Amino acid sequence: MNQATLMITICMLIPTVVLVAAWVLAARSTEDREKSTPFECGFDPKNTARIPFSLRFFLLAIIFIVFDIEIVLLMPIPTMYMSSYIPQIMVTYIVFIIVLIMGLIHEWNEGSLDWSA
């Protein structure tokens, strides 16, 4: 019974010490000089977070992510084609490439890839 009491005391003491230490450390850092200055990207933390940004840059980043994922999906196709010759793999590959090229042409005609405008 004495050992169980010791274990319960230790199990209660360790989390209490950690919580008190975290509370003391957090109280010290709330008035830190670095936290009141603008951070690395240049946004002022005291003002509103609704600062306008370049929507064209955002759309280009989304297009990059989509085409990057599509390239990752295309990478195993030559290995699959070499390991087993199934005509459906080649047909699927060609259809996927055609859809990618049509998407690229659409983005190009829409002007999403043009930075000069």
Rank of each mutant, 00 (worst) to 15 (best):
Y93W: 11
W115I: 06
Y85T: 03
S84W: 15
L13D: 02
L73Q: 12
V91K: 05
L19R: 04
W23T: 01
L60Q: 07
M1T: 02
T5V: 07
I65K: 13
G111N: 02
E34R: 13
L6I: 12
I101W: 06
L74M: 14
S29Y: 10
I14Q: 00
T9D: 13
L113I: 14
L13F: 14
W108C: 04
F43R: 09
W23N: 01
P87H: 08
T37H: 12
I71F: 10
L25E: 01
L100I: 04
A4M: 10
A21K: 03
E40P: 02
S36T: 12
V24C: 03
P38L: 08
A21T: 04
I97V: 11
M80P: 02
S116K: 13
D32M: 06
Y85Q: 08
L6S: 07
I97F: 11
T48M: 02
G42I: 01
M1E: 00
A61Y: 15
W115F: 13
I10D: 03
F57V: 14
D114A: 15
V95S: 05
Y85S: 13
I69L: 12
L19Q: 06
S54C: 09
M12Y: 12
T30Q: 07
A49V: 08
D114S: 12
L13S: 04
A27H: 08
L13W: 14
L60E: 01
G111A: 04
Q3C: 13
V91D: 02
P52S: 03
I8V: 09
L25N: 01
Y85L: 08
E31P: 01
T79C: 13
S112T: 14
L113H: 12
S112H: 15
L59P: 00
V24L: 02
M82A: 14
I89F: 13
F58Y: 11
L6A: 10
S83V: 03
L60G: 01
F96Q: 01
I71M: 01
S116L: 15
G103L: 09
G103C: 10
L74E: 05
I97K: 04
V18P: 00
C11V: 05
I71S: 03
T30H: 12
V91H: 07
I101Q: 01
L59R: 06
P45M: 03
I94S: 03
E107W: 14
V17D: 01
I101T: 03
A21G: 07
I8H: 13
L25S: 03
R33E: 10
N47H: 10
I69W: 08
I94P: 00
W115G: 08
V18Y: 08
I65P: 02
R56Y: 14
F67C: 01
V20W: 07
M102N: 10
F64R: 09
L6G: 05
E110T: 14
D44L: 08
V72H: 04
M12G: 13
I94H: 05
I69S: 09
D32T: 07
P78R: 02
T79G: 14
Y81I: 09
I77F: 06
C11W: 14
I101M: 05
A61M: 11
Y81K: 02
D68I: 08
N109P: 00
I94T: 04
I62E: 10
G111F: 13
W23H: 04
Q3W: 15
N47S: 05
A117E: 11
A27L: 04
T92W: 10
